[in-house]
Design a protein around this nucleic acid. Sequence first.
RNA 1: GGUCCAGUAACUCAGCGGUAGAGUAUCUGCCUUUUAAGCAGAGAGUCGAUGGUUCGAUCCCAUCCUGGAUCACCA
Length: 497
Amino acid sequence: MQNENQLIGVRKLKLKKLIDLGVNPYPGKNKRTYYIKKLRDNQDIFIENSQKVIINGRLKAMRRQGKIGFANISDDSGNIQIFVKRDLVGEDNYEIFKLLDLGDFVQIEGICFVTQKGEYSVKADVVTILGKNLKPLPIVKEKKVDGKIERYDVFSDIELRFRKRYLDLLLNPDVKNTFVIRAKIITEMRNFLDKNGFLEVETPTLQPLYGGANARPFTTHHNTLDIPLYLRIATELYLKRLIVGGFERVYEIGKNFRNEGMDKTHNPEFTLLELYQAFTDLDGMISLTENMISEIAKKISGSEIIDFQGEKISFQKPWSKASMTDLIKEKTGFDASDFNFEKIKAFCKDNDIEIAPNAGAGKLITEIFDRFVEPTLIQPTFVIDFPKEVSPLAKDKPGNPNLVERFELFINGNEYGNAFTELNDPIEQRRRLDAQAKLRELGDVEANVVDEDFIEALEYGMPPTGGLGLGIDRLVMLFTGNTSIKEVILFPTMRPE
RNA sequence: GGUCCAGUAACUCAGCGGUAGAGUAUCUGCCUUUUAAGCAGAGAGUCGAUGGUUCGAUCCCAUCCUGGAUCACCA
């Protein structure tokens, strides 16, 4: 820390010198006539070299050479070389230039030109400081080799990158790009949904009861009301209330919070799209999902076939669709379609699959699926015919009392989405939630709780409805080639230092 | 939670039972077309934390902290 204080001390000294020279190191006003990229795109301006331009940016590299100096500054749009010459800016202004450090914000007023080595540059008439840097940024050196940029001493410590994400964004262009793409994906999603008549809504994040998923919640307390409140684990039950209320197509993109394990695909808070559409069903959700994601793929990647870690993933329609028990049979040879509990239990035992105390055949089937099938589903696959036992909010599949109309979407061995023909029979819904309550009494901390207000809403009547949930973070991982969810969340949850 | 790996200067890393080294960054000097600028010199570290073994620990051992990988759990 001694050393760091020393580095900061040097900069504070320069700060003082600037102030002594009558310079405000943190001025409020500034001018800018060009973003750097726009300037670079306008090549004529470098050749005519008569027009005065003003650019702002952060000092990223400095090459001083006695009475001249070259530097690079970058703004949000790009990076450009500046050239400062004592004879041009004058002695006083050159003094200020000499007091600048890497990381300072500056304004350069000058004329564009091309150096002898062919570098597009701005020749300064006036150098103005816009913000003094006190703490040195890590230095990443870049060198062009055969047109490609090689980078040295890349700021790469994973822990530091996440804890000080601002540095990560500043120093790692790919990281910045990931979040630009993230924003574009969400924009394209909104465009698609808005175009298709969906209304974007906002439902409570703080809920007196949580529901819509199997998960443990975060709990908090409201002082004035003196009641416990839960951070939502899903938006499902509120969005369905809106369908009851007469909106036929609604969606919400928002944070959900689940108080459980963290790993490469799970962050305690994560972003989910949920949408509900009246007068459709699971098949409607399948085509909507295909259409939406393949359109996003085209918009983002320019193709319906994307490359993920060397794996080609195709979003060309139609995607494959298969029933859960068929897939199990295909991968293991074991036929679970009869839901014969003893037989399925025996299979689990043989394969070291843990049998939860209150698990029925349906629960065990999903366990077998998770173990043997899920990791093998690389191309987009709708897995349908889910056990009713694990789907308390989905409508029965006609003709089979064990199954519901539900799919989960798997890509690259992970779950991306979950959709049902929504259960709109209030009596059956109560039965299902009561069954969940029993499981809860038996110790299943993730079982759903009974939401009387939601059931009451169903009693007023909910039209036949299709619903979909889609994990945005995982989708962003897919489109940006990242294998950890932390890479696509700006400030992932970390244990405090 | 289990197992494995990592933590050394601001950054990226080497190293080792005898209390530390490089490059970059910083500072000083020289330098009016450089671009990983260059040349010469200098400063900078509780070697993640705490105990133990030892004459002596950054190194060996134990525990802990933080992160990563993987398995388990979990959607």
